[in-house]
């Protein structure tokens, strides 16, 4: 037990907190700590930790709204495919959304579409982030 205490201490010490700079960082930091449905202020304005896609899915669960959200998720999916950063599960989530829509489960369809749309947006973001900072992964840099 005693032997590994210094190692544990090292692990404890390495976990410091990081100050948020951009809105994206601030949002992610708050969401990471509290999950969704939490409010926080950034530069004097109040926000919630819900993703924009989740807010869209919070609209009234109707066929029209579900169709619209699925359509916009599909459009985002097309965008991420064009940059080559599509994720494997997104297509299946969109399929499930369509299935739920056909079964009249509009809320479920909207929730799934929101997740697919978020995935697509994050894939595009991943392409940008990778372009900016891939070099940090080179050993020694």
């Amino acid at each position: 037990m005693k032997k590994y205490l210094p190692l544990v201490a090292a692990l404890v010490l390495s976990s410091g907190s990081v100050a948020a700079a951009s809105f994206e960082d601030a949002f992610n930091a708050e969401r990471a700590l509290h999950g969704k449905g939490h409010t926080f202020t950034f530069e004097g304005k109040e926000y919630t930790t819900d993703h924009p896609e989740e807010l869209e899915a919070a609209a009234e669960a109707t066929e029209a709204n579900a169709k619209a959200l699925i359509a916009s998720a599909k459009a985002k999916h097309k965008e991420v495919k064009a940059v080559g950063y599509d994720w494997t599960l997104t297509k299946g989530i969109l399929k499930s959304a369509n299935k739920a829509l056909k079964a009249g489960k509009f809320q479920e369809a909207m929730n799934l579409a929101a997740q697919a749309k978020y995935h697509a947006r994050m894939g595009i973001r991943q392409a940008q982030r990778s372009a900016e900072d891939w070099v940090i992964m080179v050993p020694g840099s």
């Binding site: 976990s15 990081v18 992610n28 930091a29 700590l33 509290h34």
Partner: peptide, 14 residues
């Protein structure tokens, strides 16, 4: 405990 949550949420921050 919330810091642990944050670590799982996105470990690239640290």
């Amino acid at each position: 405990k919330k810091q642990l949550r944050a670590q799982i949420w996105d470990a690239t921050v640290k």
